[in-house]
Amino acid sequence: MANTYFQFKQFTVNQEHCAMKVCTDACIQGAFTAQYLVDHGFAVKRILDIGTGTGLLSLMLAQVHPAAITAVELDSGAALQARENFAASPWRERLEVKEGDVRQLAVSEKFDFIISNPPFYESALKSGHLQKDKAMHATSLGYSELIAAVAANLKPGASFSILLPHVEFQAFRTLAEAKGYHLNQLLQIKQSGKHGYFRAVGIFSAAARETVITDMDIRDMENQYTPAFVSLLKAYYLKL
C-alpha cells in the first residue's frame, strides 16, 4: 500500500465549515476496515459511508480498495469539506458525496459493504453546543435507526463496519443481533496498557461464525506508539 496524500496527524476540518476533527480512533477504524477489505472484500464493488463527516473513512478505504464509494452526510458544512477533500484526492472519480439523511437515501442498487462512525453516546448528556451534539450524540440517528438504515442499503449476506465507545458497543451488538447481524470481527482499543478499553470496531454480517477478537493499545508505557498501532496505520500516517 502506498502512502496516502494526506498527513493525517495534521489534518483537521476547516472550523468555518464544521466542528468535527479527524481523530485517532476513526483512523484506526479506517485502517482496520481497509485491511478487512483487502483480505475479504474481493466482491465488494460499491461501498456506503454513513455519516462521512470530513470523508476520512471513504478516503482510507479508497486508498487500498478499488470500489466506488458513496458518502452520505447530513451536516452541510461537513458535506462541503468532504467534497473538497474528495476533489483533491487521487481517487476523486470513485468518490461521491450525497448531502442528506441516509433514511431518505434513494439508490438503484444496494451496497456490498457499509462503514459508519456514527454519533457517540446515545444516552449521554448533551453539551448544549448544537454542532458538537450532532457529532458526538445520536441526535439525528439513533442506533436502532442506524441498523435499519444499514438493513435498507446493504445487500443480503454483505458486511458492515462500525466504531463505537466500548461501553456502548454491547448495546449496539444486541440490537444488531436482534436484526440478524452477527459480530464477525472485533477490535478492542485502549489508549495504553494503563487504561481500560475505550473504543470498539466491529465488523458484522448475516453470517453467524465465531467472533475473531483483537486487542490493541495505541501507546506503550513510555507513551510511544505500539508496534501494533504502527503496523496498522503506517500506510496512512506519513510521519509515523
Rank of each mutant, 00 (worst) to 15 (best):
T174L: 02
K194R: 15
M216W: 01
S159L: 10
I218G: 10
L163P: 01
H166M: 07
I162K: 05
L187T: 05
E210T: 11
P165Q: 09
L164A: 04
I218N: 10
D220M: 12
A158G: 06
L164I: 01
T174Y: 01
L175Q: 14
G196I: 08
R209P: 09
A158I: 11
Q170I: 15
A200I: 05
G180P: 06
R173G: 06
I203V: 10
M216S: 03
T211P: 05
V212Q: 13
T214W: 03
E177S: 15
A206S: 15
L183P: 00
E168I: 03
R173K: 05
F204S: 02
K190A: 07
P165D: 12
I162T: 08
M216I: 03
P156F: 12
E177N: 13
S161E: 00
D217K: 09
F198P: 10
I203W: 04
R209T: 14
T214P: 01
I189S: 05
G180V: 08
L175W: 07
I162P: 07
N184T: 10
G193M: 04
K190Q: 12
A178Y: 09
Y197S: 03
S161Y: 01
Q185V: 09
V201F: 01
G157T: 04
I189M: 04
D215V: 07
A178S: 11
Q185M: 06
G157L: 10
I203K: 05
F160D: 02
S192A: 07
F169A: 07
P165G: 11
D217S: 14
A176R: 09
I162N: 08
A158V: 04
M216Q: 05
Y181E: 09
Q191I: 14
K155L: 03
D215Y: 02
I218Y: 00
M216H: 03
I213A: 11
R199V: 06
I162E: 07
N184K: 02
L164H: 05
A171W: 13
G157F: 06
Q191D: 15
A178L: 11
R219I: 14
E177R: 14
F169Q: 07
G196A: 12
F160V: 02
T211G: 06
A208Y: 13
M216E: 03
P165E: 12
Y181H: 08
P165M: 12
Q185N: 13
T214K: 11
A206Q: 15
H166A: 14
G202E: 01
M216N: 00
T211R: 02
H195R: 14
M216D: 00
T214M: 07
I189T: 09
